[in-house]
């Protein structure tokens, strides 16, 4: 006597069954959302409708799979749908941030004066054909440059210490550097303010802001640098020692050149991390709308501070300028980040 054979289960992810279930649930969700939002529920906005559609889709999809397959399959598939939706939401947020900034900011960026003028003689109500971010660009370049000059040698030397020299201190240093990456920007700014302005009597300046940025940048450079150095194959070091090199020669001629692109990545990531930091700059650099190319004396504006100042005017043109500067900042971050990734990938292959 043979048992009645069940229909053979197809284990491939995409087949006629699974695709048709997806399509059915999708069509159902879209039509239901359309009917309800147009006729019944007071859903006027795209975002709410999308949210409602997603929930409907998940429910319909579960019912669809459960009715044509099994309860187990339905649970599996609904879980997959939920995880996929979470992933898509995350990337939708990224796309929304980037595209919203681009849409609101591109008009300001298109004017030549945006790049060649300051807002020293421009009021917040003036049209976009007047005023620009020149002072902020100069300030950001100088502040981030000084921050990099301070934190890159220090961070890379610390990374070399952690990975090449080591010792009893290494564990403590690693823990503290980790903790440092968690210091809020505002606290870093407050610290520099307490030291430079309150204790040393130094005025607010681009240099003070640069030191605050360096504090934020140091842990990024150190941690990334350490990871990169750890990727240098051990046999290379052993070969260098076997040929009679001292440790310094090994590090200088073998380890650092091997890790060079990776170390550049570490620096780029550090710069990308701090170039848009507003909180540390807020307390330390002071604000002036005028071009001040001297980071050591007097207040100096930077791109984040420019955005922060302009956006608080309740006037369309000022806000457009803020979005223009935000677009510049975002573009720089994306370019730095992409460059860092491309370099990092070259290292791997």
């Amino acid at each position: 006597m043979t048992a009645p054979t069940a229909r053979r289960r197809r284990t491939d992810r995409w087949n006629a069954d699974t695709v048709s279930q997806l399509v059915a649930a999708g069509v159902g969700a879209v039509s239901l959302t359309w009917v309800l939002s147009a006729r019944v529920l007071p859903i006027g906005r795209v975002a709410e409708a999308a949210l409602f559609g997603m929930v409907t889709f998940v429910v319909l999809y579960g019912v669809c799979v459960a009715s044509s397959d099994s309860w187990f399959a339905a649970r599996d598939r609904v879980a997959a749908a939920l995880f996929t939706i979470a992933g898509l939401l995350l990337f939708a947020a990224l796309v929304a941030v980037v595209s919203f900034t681009a849409v609101r900011g591109y008009q300001a960026v298109l004017h030549i004066n945006f790049w060649t003028e300051t807002t020293a003689t421009t009021g917040p109500a003036d049209p976009l054909t007047k005023g620009g971010v020149l002072a902020a660009l100069v300030g950001t370049l100088e502040q981030v440059g000084i921050a990099a000059l301070v934190s890159v040698p220090l961070g890379l030397a610390t990374a070399v210490y952690l990975n090449e020299v080591g010792g009893r201190l290494a564990r403590t240093v690693r823990t503290v550097i980790d903790a440092m990456s968690a210091v809020p920007g505002i606290v870093a700014g407050l610290f520099v303010f307490a030291v430079a302005v309150l204790t040393l009597g130094y005025s607010r300046s681009g240099l003070a802001a640069a030191i605050a940025l360096a504090i934020e940048m140091l842990p990024v450079v150190t941690r990334t640098g350490e990871v990169v150095l750890r990727l240098v194959p051990e046999p290379l070091r052993e070969a260098a020692y076997a040929l009679g090199s001292t440790q310094w020669q090994t590090v200088r001629k073998v380890v650092l050149p091997t890790a060079r692109t990776g170390l550049v990545t570490a620096v780029l990531l550090g710069v990308a991390r701090v170039i848009g930091e507003t909180a540390p700059v807020l307390l330390t650099s002071g604000f002036t709308a005028e071009l001040n190319a001297d980071p050591a004396h007097g207040p100096q504006v930077s791109l984040p501070l420019f955005i922060f100042t302009e956006v608080r005017f309740p006037l369309d043109h000022a806000i457009s300028r803020a979005f223009g500067a935000a677009l510049v900042l975002l573009t720089v971050v994306i370019v730095l980040f992409t460059a860092a990734r491309l370099l990092g990938r070259k290292k791997l292959s």
């Binding site: 848009g276 507003t278 922060f308 956006v311 979005f323 935000a326």
Partner: peptide, 16 residues
């Protein structure tokens, strides 16, 4: 992309 999203300046998130 996730790492890039973490690197987007907080002021840009603020405007958004």
């Amino acid at each position: 992309l996730v790492d890039l999203m973490a690197a987007v300046p907080s002021i840009v998130y603020g405007l958004w």
